[in-house]
């Protein structure tokens, strides 16, 4: 039984010409203790899908269909009071760019304490403080700095604070939305290691969102690739990214092109190929395979909606030309 089970989730933003479906009928699940990566280019609906889980969507966005079952309860039908008890207590978020995600007028210590006070009312002040200090130490920040304000920390340290804050109520699931995007490469590696080790240590599930495939390849158990509001391929990271020699690699033409668009320092030098064209305009209604306009292998059949097909070993791809894609 997985911790999170998303079925047919559709999120719509109102647009000039009707609804824009940023997330369009997505099925997705995260198991207990699983570290899942979500990849895709900007605007493909990664963040919208992730924020739909604890229902933290912008006010104009609506969940129009589907369910988000977390720990047995459907969050899409839950009222605000119910959601408040789930947020941070069960599902916390490490937001994109911690530079602005921390409140500039409160000390980092008090910001970490806040969710503990709100959700774990039985906790004494002293216990809460010691937990806060323990969390800071766990992410590599001296507990003595709890009284400092966010602007007194560097970007990497602020992201660490954000992570400590996310773990404050010992949640079951942490959503990390591009947690390392604004950081330099060394800091990125440290933060990723930290996330991974904390995840293993506290037995949490993690949803890591990134546009950087190499990041996902080295940290995640399982990955999902999104394109234009749909998940086109999902499976164990080793299989999808092909680092596992015996099991093929990416099966969906989009994932394959995406991988070829990244340099790999371990392989022989090849030209980096961009993907010609642009992602579809989601303000227009979509049908069939969203990628077919940019796909070399597209046939008439691709105008029909493809579904995720199991290609072995929990590896699934949504493409009509899977037989062709293998050899390409």
């Amino acid at each position: 039984m997985s911790l999170l089970e998303i079925r047919g989730l559709t999120v719509a933003y109102p647009g000039k010409h009707g609804d824009v479906l940023a997330v369009d009928g997505v099925d997705f699940s995260i198991g207990k203790g699983e570290f899942v990566g979500l990849a895709g280019e900007s605007g493909c609906g990664k963040t919208t899908m992730a924020m739909a889980i604890p229902n933290l969507l912008p006010r104009n966005a609506r969940i129009t269909a589907g369910s988000v079952v977390f720990d047995g309860a459907d969050l899409t039908t839950m009222d605000e009071d119910g959601l408040r008890t789930v947020r941070w207590n069960e599902i916390s978020v490490v937001f994109q760019g911690a530079l602005n995600a921390l409140n500039p007028v409160h000390t980092v210590g008090s910001q970490i304490l806040e969710p503990i006070r709100v959700h774990d009312r039985g906790t004494s002040e002293a216990e809460a403080r010691s937990r806060m200090e323990e969390l800071l130490e766990a992410v590599g920040i001296p507990a003595g700095r709890a009284g400092d304000f966010p602007h007194q920390f560097s970007g990497g340290m602020r992201q660490r604070v954000m992570i400590a804050m996310a773990l404050a109520c010992r949640p079951q699931l942490v959503i990390a939305d591009e947690p390392i995007t604004a950081l330099d490469v060394m800091t990125q590696a440290q933060i990723l290691d930290l996330l991974r080790s904390l995840c293993d240590r506290y037995g949490l599930s993690m949803l890591l969102i990134s546009h950087d495939l190499s990041v996902l390849a080295q940290t995640c158990d399982r990955v999902a690739v999104m394109y234009a509001g749909r998940i086109v391929e999902t499976g164990p990271a080793g299989r999808v990214f092909g680092s596992d020699e015996h099991h093929g690699g990416a099966r969906h033409p989009y994932t394959q092109r995406l991988l070829r668009a990244y340099p790999n320092i371990r392989r022989e030098r090849v030209f980096i190929e961009g993907i010609p064209g642009y992602p579809p305009d989601l303000t227009q209604p979509q049908s069939g395979c969203r990628f077919r306009a940019r796909c070399d292998l597209a046939i008439d059949k691709c105008a029909e909606e493809p579904t995720l097909v199991d290609v072995g070993g929990d590896h699934r791809a949504a493409c009509w030309r899977l037989d062709q894609a293998v050899t390409s």
Binding site: F95, Q96, N100, A101, P104, E114, P115, V118
Partner: peptide
């Protein structure tokens, strides 16, 4: 509209807080 307000919402705080 600031990011930290989304954090506050994500923390499960009441609207008033």
């Amino acid at each position: 509209g600031e990011d930290y307000m989304l954090t506050a919402r994500g923390k499960g705080l009441t609207r008033r807080t």
